[in-house]
């Protein structure tokens, strides 16, 4: 594969490009259908591009109608559903949980990585053990708890269990093990308080791990589905995935509307991914159990 234009190289590019197209096709289809003219949404064979682009030039007399029809899915979505509400709910819950997790898990991870306190091993293994247990086990007990606490059909029912996940503690601990002990000791000798050492030395040094944890937390909360459909009943409280499911249940026929909703839900994650791509990649390769 050394020479620049060897056949192997071209074959490699060809295979990868075909596979990349297959993998991106569903996302492309979301946007293409959201902008498709209603007459073509269910056409057979499927139209691979929004036909408004073609008709805009072939039917100049109808341009305003064509533009209107192209965006009618979004118009209907904004007028007849709670989509903004769902968007707002998803956004604020994701941000609150992400901020909370960053604070809680950095503190806990620091204690586990850098403090020699009795019970440290126990906590660490407890965390590892619960990470192995499938989430479905706690579904029923959490449901009963949430009901007894009167939190059913509130956003607390989503936020509190999400804030309790331990993956971030594990991640932060693994990262902080590599911070130099000398630095923390000298801060102590200089008379810095525990809190100041943490805030002024540990947190700034942990920025890469914080970025990774923040992004993954945001993504998981934004896309979370199983638990929200169990605890939310009120259309005003839905998050985007739950709202989209109810749209699908109600409007089987209106595929254009559904895909417009999917587009609204997909764009923020695409933007986050494009802006922070390197942290996603770093995050996946951080880890491995160091003891």
């Amino acid at each position: 594969m050394q020479s620049k234009h060897s056949p192997t190289k071209w074959l490699t590019y060809f295979v990868l490009l075909v596979w990349a197209i297959i993998s991106l096709l569903p996302l492309y289809w979301v946007f293409s259908t959201a902008l498709q003219l209603p007459d073509y949404v269910e056409s057979d064979p499927p139209k691979m591009i929004p036909m408004g682009i073609v008709e805009y030039f072939t039917h100049p007399e109808n341009r305003s109608q064509i533009v209107h029809d192209t965006f009618s899915g979004f118009q209907q979505l904004f007028n007849s559903t709670n989509i903004w509400r769902w968007f707002f709910n998803s956004a604020y819950i994701s941000i609150v949980v992400t901020a909370g997790i960053l604070v809680l898990d950095t503190m806990a991870g620091y204690a586990l990585a850098k403090k020699q306190f009795p019970g440290r091993k126990l906590f660490f293994w407890l965390i590892i053990a619960t990470m192995m247990i499938p989430g479905q086990i706690t579904l029923v007990p959490l449901f009963i708890m949430v009901q007894n606490l009167g939190l059913m059909n509130t956003h607390w029912a989503l936020i509190l269990p999400d804030l309790s996940m331990v993956f971030g503690v594990f991640l932060m601990r693994q990262y902080m093990l590599s911070l130099p002990n000398d630095l923390l000791e000298s801060a102590k000798i200089d008379g810095a308080s525990e809190w100041k050492t943490f805030w002024k030395i540990v947190v700034p040094l942990s920025k890469p791990a914080l970025a990774t944890l923040g992004i993954f937390t945001f993504m998981n909360v934004w896309n979370s589905f199983l638990w929200p459909i169990i605890v939310l009943n009120d259309a005003d409280l839905y998050t985007l995935p739950v709202g989209l499911k109810t749209l699908q249940d109600q409007n089987l026929a209106i595929f254009k509307l559904l895909m417009s909703g999917a587009a609204v839900a997909a764009v923020p994650m695409i933007v986050v991914f494009m802006s922070f791509q390197r942290y996603f990649i770093k995050g996946l390769t951080l880890g491995g159990v160091k003891e």
Partner: peptide, 19 residues
């Protein structure tokens, strides 16, 4: 290619399933 193959992973399964 890393981006092209990873992007669908960050998209909600709800959306992928609808498509």
């Amino acid at each position: 290619f890393r981006g092209a193959f990873y992007l669908p992973t960050v998209t909600s399964m709800v959306i992928i399933a609808m498509v």
